[in-house]
Amino acid sequence: MKRPQGFERPAQPRQAAPDAAQRKAQADARPTAPPASNESAARRRRADGASRRPSTAAPGAGSDPASASARTERIEPLRAQRPLRASDPHEDSERPVGADTAAGTAGADPIGAASVGAETARATSAPPSGTPGGWAARRALAKATRARRRYERAEVRRFTVRSRRRRLAWGVSLGAVGLLVVAVLIGAYSPIMALRDVRVEGASRVQAADVAAAFEPMLGTPLALVDRASVQEAMSGFPLIETYQTEAVPPGTLVVRIVERTPVGVIETDDGLALVDAAGVVMDRPESRPEGQPLITVDGGVSGDGFRAVASVVRALPADVRAQVTAASAETADDVTLQVGDAKVVWGSAEESGLKADVLAALLAAAPPGSVSLYDVSAPTSPVTM
């Protein structure tokens, strides 16, 4: 198997050649073979004499074949066993300690682990530190251990790259959301975003300065804390305002857009004349009928169907025609009549009021009120003048 890159076998330290004094000391230390025992020497002498003595028995003389073969059998001398010589301190380092274990488990290790294990085994089989090359062996062991650790860390990183990327993505996303929330909270509730100016748009009958003054208690409040209830309380003192809309403009401006109520006429009440709009809200109580506002006469007051029909007709009239209307009345929702100068206008119901208003404007242009006394636009496709 090819050794992975980065796990080369460490260089083995080269032993220095022993000089003549060391070789002589090793020879003197090596024990010699012990002398053979007397019994062994006697046995060899008898065997040598038997081999040189000629046989006196004639072949085939009737002697016992077994005894003849025993007399002619040569006895092999016993060889003295060679005693074990003293072990060399460097002799055990030729076979690494744990080499069998490393070889047996190489197939179970991941790619490159067997090579690192072999390097470690060879490094651990080095001579002791007191012998020549001991420090080099310890350095090789440390190098192999570091290589093994680097390999394991690389494998862990390789198999956990997806989870690490996923954790990094989640961390970045949550961090961005957290920073955004913190920035919004700081910006919305800090004094930088406090209310300092109120701008009023759409005011005509209502004084814009009076509307802005109603918001003075809110000055200094962060725009995010200016709620609907506070705005409604400030606008409740202006009955001429029909609808309003607020818009916060950073860093400290509140824009108030208002739509004033449009009066449709004057109606007689128990308390006198009342200028009302289409919803029947009293806008003013004048002493006499204002110029351009018709006097409305209906059954049931401002809550009846007749008033709602008259109000819808008056609001549909063009401005130049409306200025000429002096009175409006209705007993029911289908018999609305108007008074234009000395002429009477039969309107009918409030349906198709836009078309009827256009037809009446054309009739007034063609025949002024002084020339006719009646305009009937209840059927706008067939108007009648008399």
Rank of each mutant, 00 (worst) to 15 (best):
A279T: 09
S382C: 09
V372D: 06
V325R: 03
V359A: 09
F307I: 10
M283S: 08
A208G: 07
T72S: 15
W170P: 04
R45W: 15
T221K: 00
S69Y: 06
I296Y: 05
Y151G: 15
A213H: 07
I258H: 00
D64H: 03
V231E: 00
V181F: 01
K356L: 04
G306D: 09
S353T: 02
P83T: 06
A362H: 04
G62Y: 13
V313G: 01
A183Q: 04
D19Y: 00
A343F: 07
A379Q: 02
Y375M: 02
S115K: 11
L179W: 01
V255H: 07
Q207P: 12
Q232D: 00
T332R: 08
G304T: 13
A330F: 13
E247L: 01
S349T: 15
E247P: 00
V266F: 12
G304V: 15
D277F: 08
A27R: 05
R308M: 11
V346G: 05
A362Y: 03
T253M: 14
E8R: 14
P59I: 14
L374G: 05
D227E: 03
R95E: 14
E260T: 01
A137V: 06
E352D: 04
Q232G: 00
R257C: 01
D376I: 08
K344M: 11
S349W: 05
Q207R: 14
D100N: 07
R157T: 08
S236A: 10
P127S: 12
L78R: 06
R43F: 07
P263W: 10
S373R: 15
E268S: 11
Y375T: 09
D284P: 13
P239G: 03
A147K: 14
A229N: 00
S87Y: 02
R9P: 09
R289V: 14
L219Y: 01
Q15S: 02
G237N: 03
A41E: 15
L338F: 09
K356E: 08
R285C: 06
P222W: 00
V359Y: 08
A361F: 03
Q26G: 06
A126D: 03
W347A: 10
R44G: 04
G117D: 05
P83M: 13
P368N: 09
T145H: 09
